[in-house]
Design a protein around this nucleic acid. Structure first.
Ligand SMILES: [Mn+2]
Ligand SMILES: [Mn+2]
Ligand SMILES: [Zn+2]
Ligand SMILES: [Zn+2]
Lengths: 151, 151
DNA sequence: TCTTAAAGGAGAATGGTTCTCTATAAAGAA
DNA sequence: TTCTTTATAGAGAACCATTCTCCTTTAAGA
């Protein structure tokens, strides 16, 4: 199975928990809540959005705690961060490795497109620049189907 | 001539001046200095770097002025902005349209690679997602040749 | 020159993120 | 189950690249 196939959210939750445990990090209610949200999110939520969802179950949770958990998961390579200079960062807990994104500039939706012709591009880059490529970032900005309808 | 061929810095300076004039923006010494720097820059300078260069000739220049000029050129599509969430934005005045970049994570050098297999990728995206793609951002992060040598 | 609105200079404000410090509680030991 | 240790949570201050505000200066046409 290719690694970018959509796993069930249960698989991802289990994987993230296993990684935390194997590094002797404690499983706190706040961490578990964030993990569940990330493992189940079809969109690419922001820290603020994760925060609001966690507060439904744990109203006293601090925003700093969410930031800390997100930083930890990022460090453990269990979370992909999409940083944006003008707005909040967005996170992908289902596919924690670099992959292309399609971003609607109007409704801010972020999707994972299926692409076949990307691998040869990566090879061409390494060959022509002499760089040792560590990771990449590929974003297409535009209007999603829904936002094209509204004038 | 394809639009991404490297023009001389004189061509770019003339083009940027023409755009400013055609929109009735005034040609001030500060604007001219920034334009010259952008038209001549082989790297992708930050606002701070542009600021330092301008201050050699005009020591009283304000940082806010550089930000304003950069914003204006961006608005006129004469400057490409590469925003980064953790560090300063970088600018390309020679190729003011979206194009791939190769970024050294150690020395922060940013280069323009030559790529042939990128056009089919763009077509595949539009076809498969239904998005109307307006622009894109493609960055490869890694170590440049020089930074690979140092351990 | 003269006029006037655009542009520059200086510093405050912004806001997402990070840091700091104290209180709390997870997890292993007894 | 209770105890102990120390990682983690909570709260708010600090950070800092960028933007904004307000006043002064000046480019450019008359
Ligand atoms: Mn994704
Ligand atoms: Mn470039
Ligand atoms: Zn949309
Ligand atoms: Zn380098």
């Amino acid at each position: 199975m290719p690694k970018d196939d959509c796993n069930t959210s249960g698989d991802r939750l289990y994987q993230m928990l296993a990684t935390l445990k194997s590094h002797d990090f404690r499983i706190t209610p706040q961490r578990l809540a964030v993990l569940k949200i990330l493992a189940a999110s079809e969109d690419h939520p922001s820290v603020e959005q994760i925060y609001e969802k966690v507060r439904v179950e744990f109203p006293t949770t601090s925003l700093a705690t969410i930031y800390k958990i997100v930083a930890l998961l990022k460090e453990l390579n269990e979370l992909l961060e999409l940083g944006f200079p003008d707005e909040s960062n967005r996170y992908d807990g289902k596919k924690p490795f670099p992959h292309p994104h399609v971003i609607c500039t109007k409704c801010k939706k972020i999707m994972d497109p299926e692409l076949t012709s990307f691998d040869e591009l990566k090879e061409e880059i390494a060959r022509k620049t002499g760089f040792r490529i560590i990771h990449h970032r590929l974003d297409f900005f535009g209007l999603c189907r829904e936002c094209q309808k509204v004038e």
